[in-house]
């Protein structure tokens, strides 16, 4: 599992192409959204959380969808299938995606807060916790979606469509939580949706763990 994760990180770092383009996606999405709202004196909490969510969603979908697809494109999937059994592969990929998701969401969050001068952040600590949990959920949902998409045609067009339903409960809870942390709610008040978010992500991982075998073995 650690070997799979280490291999993936090494190969990503070696090319840096994916990381660079991912960073550009983050910058472009955030800048476009913030620019659209530049004339607002004060962006309402609901809009601010929605904008942040959209940036996170698109950056994550662009970046994290590649895990299995790149394996398929490079033609290394057969080798991996021969040498490694399903479970270490799944958890290795999940680990890498979690690291990526945390990184992506941190970058997007910092960029967003830096660029949008007309957004007031009520409780930074709550935002941090929400972003961490959202990253966890993103990684859980996108890993299995990437495994599903790897074998189909027109991958890049289909991937956002495919992962959207799995991400939806995260979206509903996440936008609400982001909004509340912008409004400055204490972490204790948000405990219930936070736990629901965590529970959903864990459930996705459990179901993926059960099902991954069927995707991995031909």
């Amino acid at each position: 599992m650690a070997a799979v994760a280490a291999k993936d990180i090494r190969s990503e770092l070696r090319t840096r192409f994916a990381l660079n383009s991912l960073a550009m996606v983050a910058v472009v999405t955030v800048v476009v959204l913030v620019y659209a709202a530049r004339e607002e004196v004060k962006v309402p909490v609901g809009i601010a959380s929605g904008m942040l969510w959209v940036s996170m969603f698109f950056t994550a979908v662009t970046g994290l969808g590649r895990t299995f697809v790149s394996e398929e494109e490079r033609g290394t999937v057969l080798l991996l299938r021969l040498t490694t059994s399903a479970i270490p592969v799944y958890f290795g990929k999940l680990l890498v995606n979690m690291l990526f998701a945390v990184g992506v969401n941190a970058v997007v969050g910092v960029l967003y807060l830096f660029f949008s001068t007309n957004v007031q952040l009520g409780s930074p600590f709550a935002l941090l916790v929400v972003l961490l949990l959202c990253s966890f959920g993103f990684a859980a949902s996108l890993t299995i979606a990437s495994a599903i998409i790897a074998r189909s045609s027109s991958k890049s067009a289909l991937f956002p469509v495919l992962c959207f339903p799995i991400l939806l409960p995260l979206m509903v809870l996440g936008i609400d939580l982001l909004g509340r942390s912008f409004a400055g709610a204490a972490l204790g008040v948000m405990l219930e949706p936070l736990l629901l978010l965590l529970l959903y992500s864990v459930l996705v991982i459990v179901v993926s763990y059960i099902l991954f075998d069927f995707l991995w073995k031909e």
């Binding site: 299995i144 599903i148 998409i149 074998r151 189909s152 045609s153 027109s154 289909l158 469509v161 495919l162 339903p165 799995i166 939806l168 409960p169 959903y200 459930l203 996705v204 179901v207 993926s208 099902l211 069927f214 995707l215």
Partner: peptide, 27 residues
């Protein structure tokens, strides 16, 4: 959309079954 993107019948059946089971969570 997923079903229409996979040509092979057995592969389509297998992958869309996995997707269906995962979708039970959000649904």
């Amino acid at each position: 959309a997923l079903r229409s993107a996979i040509e092979n019948q057995d592969q389509r059946a297998r992958i869309s079954a996995v997707y269906m089971i995962i979708l039970v969570l959000p649904v």
